[in-house]
Amino acid sequence: MEETSTVPLVSVVIPAYNGSNTIEQTIKSVQVQDLRTEIIIVDDSSSDQTLTKAIAVLKSGSNSYKIIRHPSNLGLSASLNDGLAIAHGENVLVLHQDCELMKPDWISSAVKCMDPKVAVVTGYYGMSDQDEMNLAKKTFGLLRRQIHPRPAKDFEIVNFSEGKCDLYKKRVLESIGGFPTRYRIAGEDLSVSVQLRQRGYSILKQYNLPVLQRYGGKAQSFRGNLRKEFEFGRAMGGILGEHRFRIFEDIGKGYARARTTHRAVQVAYTTLLFLSALAYLSTMNPWFLVATLSFLAYRYVYYALTISSGFRNQRSLAEHPLIDTLWMPALGILSDPIYSLGFLWGLLKWVGGRKI
């Protein structure tokens, strides 16, 4: 572990794992901030050049920094907790290795949003230009509603933090024991969000704080994205088991509600589709076949409209082949049962008391 003696106002914890394609830009976006920070890199036993590239960029800047390297892969929550344990700042920014702060006053502006009731400030997420994205990144970015118009409002209270770039009050995080290590890959932010809301704190989504997410790792392939859908579902299944329906309290409005509703509908839709298909195969009643095909048609139209809207809302993606709008929804239909299977698996793991 390396460090300098400067004690900053904000500690930036960057959990890293095989992120050599994006880690440099992420660190540089912190180095240009107008507020003094320390940068803490927690490398979770990467097998690529992530740590080498990170150290080179850190040494070229003036920020104080610390480096932790895990001898084996311990998971995201363990990495975040290790970073939190050595952070000196009264506020801690959790910044994932593929995210960039798009304003030099991002951190200082987020700090100003903190008040006695606000424990987390999260930003407004966008995507890279089309030229920087392969087809898999673009497709699933659209399907997950990660390309969306910026609301007219400047901020809103939401039920969950984004998990990718969030400013926390350190003492509040410590009061709940940090990030739950039961969630190794995803879901730790959801659990923390529920616990904070139960204690009367708010989570503020600030639309004037843009974050660019470049999506490395699994997001670079179709197979990897489908695996991420399973992991997202597994995390939400564990969260539902742990916190019951409290996860839907104070759900917020607009974009925040739309994303949460989308995930809930994925599970409900898959359940109905499975039941109608099973009923048809059992009885050969044509009405059950009509119901099954209607469910499929509904989801196809839903995803087609989502993709079309995403293309319109991102000017760099405005010119696109019509064929993309026609075939991309099929991947959305495929992602629904994969997410739902993950959701069921997460519930079963929670019941069995295992890590999720």
Rank of each mutant, 00 (worst) to 15 (best):
T4Y: 10
S5C: 10
L9G: 09
V12S: 08
S20Y: 06
I23P: 06
E24I: 12
V30R: 07
Q33P: 02
R36G: 11
K53P: 02
K53Q: 11
A54R: 08
I55Q: 13
S60R: 13
S60H: 10
G61K: 04
G61V: 06
I68F: 08
N91W: 11
V92F: 06
L93N: 02
L95E: 06
H96L: 15
D98S: 06
L101H: 03
M114G: 08
K117Y: 06
K117D: 12
K117T: 12
V121Y: 04
G126N: 11
S128V: 01
L135V: 10
I147Y: 05
A152G: 13
I157A: 02
N159R: 13
K164L: 15
D166Q: 06
D166I: 03
R171D: 15
G177H: 03
F179Q: 04
F179L: 07
F179M: 11
F179C: 07
R184W: 01
S191W: 01
S191H: 05
Y201W: 11
I203D: 04
L204M: 14
Q213R: 14
Q213S: 09
R214G: 00
F222Y: 15
F222W: 02
F222A: 00
M236Q: 13
G241N: 10
E242I: 04
I247Q: 11
I251A: 11
I251D: 05
R257C: 03
R259P: 00
Q266R: 14
A268M: 14
Y269V: 13
Y280M: 05
L281A: 14
T283K: 09
F288W: 15
R299A: 07
Y302F: 15
I307W: 00
F311T: 04
R312F: 08
L322M: 11
T325I: 14
M328W: 04
P329A: 08
S335I: 02
I338Q: 01
V351M: 14
G352Y: 12
G353Q: 11
